[in-house]
Design a protein around this nucleic acid. Sequence first.
DNA 1: CTAGCGTCA
DNA 2: CGACTGACGCTAG
Length: 567
Amino acid sequence: MMFPVNMEEQDYTTYCREMLTQLMTSKVSKVCLDAQELILTMISHFSLDITSVYNWSMVDPKVAGWLLNPDHPPNTFTEVVKMLWKDNHQECDQDADATTLLCQDLSQLLDVMELLRRRLMDCDLLDLYLNVEMKLTPILAGMEYHGICVDPQRLINMGDILKKRIGMVESDAYKSAGHRFLLSSHVQLRTVLFDELHLDEKCENRQKLARTSVNNLKSTSESVLVKLQHLHPLPKLVLEYRKLEKMKSTYVDGILACIKEGKLTATWDHTSAATGRLTSANPNIQSVPKQPLEITEASNKQPAEGDKHETTSLCAREPYIAREGCSFLAADFQSIEFRLLAHFSKDPSLLKVFQGDDKKDVFVELTSQWMNVPPGSVQTTDRERTKRVVYSIMYGVGPEKLATYLNVSAAEAKGFISSFLRRFPGVSRFTHKCIEECKAKGHVRTILKRWRLIPNIKSPNFFLKSQAERQAVNFVVQGSAADICKLAMILVGKQLVERGLRARLLIQLHDELVFEVADEEVDSVRGVVKDIMQSDDLLCDGKIKLQVPLRVSISVGKSWGRMTDSE
DNA sequence: CTAGCGTCA
DNA sequence: CGACTGACGCTAG
């Protein structure tokens, strides 16, 4: 490429922008390490419109390397080269020099990419690579570019409330322990709870108190504290302290530290999860709590009220605000992994649960059946528990673990699992099929042929083998759901551009896409998003048929913490 | 049960 | 002293 030297600065910028834009949209194959970063840099530097980068096409060796071996992705070009070398030649000792030589020379980029392309083709991953992963790259760059607006003042106010409450809990804890100690230290807490107060000895079923996995010490985990909370006021105070601290350090101070120029800019990575899911970091937006934290403030202001307590609820998502004249629009695939299990297992009674257009929420329905209450009065916490239980069983939970979830005996939990699996016999058939396939081929694949190599499936170690079996099953379902969400991001993005709608994708929460939409376009965007995500053509223009329809629910709001369902 | 990331000691 | 690890806790299914 040629760049003229004697040109006015403004013309030069324009020239470069034109030049690079032409290059990016041309059919020429472009190999770029960390393509997402390059796109982000170019958007920022040339102030490009996000929509203009959606059809940029590049190939990124690191993404290819990840797709080939998602559990051990290469982090540098050197590692990409080494990976190819190792796969092609078993005896790599004498080739060590050649490897280092190649690594030093980025001019080998094209050759390396060609090798990668062949490998992708041989492994039947090329289509996924070109049409899903690389198409997603500009979308992620766009998400990183515009970021999310957060109201810092609201965060600061939340921080103040938390700080006050933490101080009160601390002094209460010191009183009940008899002395000051570091509440955040598990070691010190262990001493106070067990060596000084001997709470474990007072606990009726002390055998069942958990221990730390490594040193087999007495654990101070939530499950233990819950069991001890009726014996002494301290455990309850520690539990509250931890909740408050977590909220303050991670979701108030942590978020505040990530705000730059009034907005929150996370980094989005599609090569850090082996299942194909996206991750976000700095901050991890995907882990901002959904449920508000209830705080009981002792009301010292109104002594007349006696021991009445004022309760404030702090919602970590509340400070996330749509820009002026815009609203958030969230589109959520309803129980996508459960539906995919129905698809894969072809279990008739499970298919029946999802067939038809009905707007019922499966987890609400199941909760209402199990708890014997009308669907309308199912609490969100109960629904959430049902969801956990269903997924736990799907992925092979043991009776002991399930028993702690449900707070029942292990025997009851065992009965629960077997009755669930009896009701949906296709589930076990599917799990066995996955495991057999994995044993035979050494890997399993998702609906879009994404693969995961699981060598431990043949391990002589029982724990490792069992874990591998659960991973194999989980990968097929979770990975397929990730595939579908990625397709949705790509197709919705394309459609919004084509219709000239100015809706920008801000957040992906695995099965949910959050857009920022101009108020007057909310209705049109809702229509487009819902149509695309529920369309039978979502999967490769209908080439892949699902046994169950996908259903999407939409909610809209000015703040991420106050979204309301929207038909 | 499976995926992640952030905080703290 | 800074890098690393384990335990914990938040998310998503």
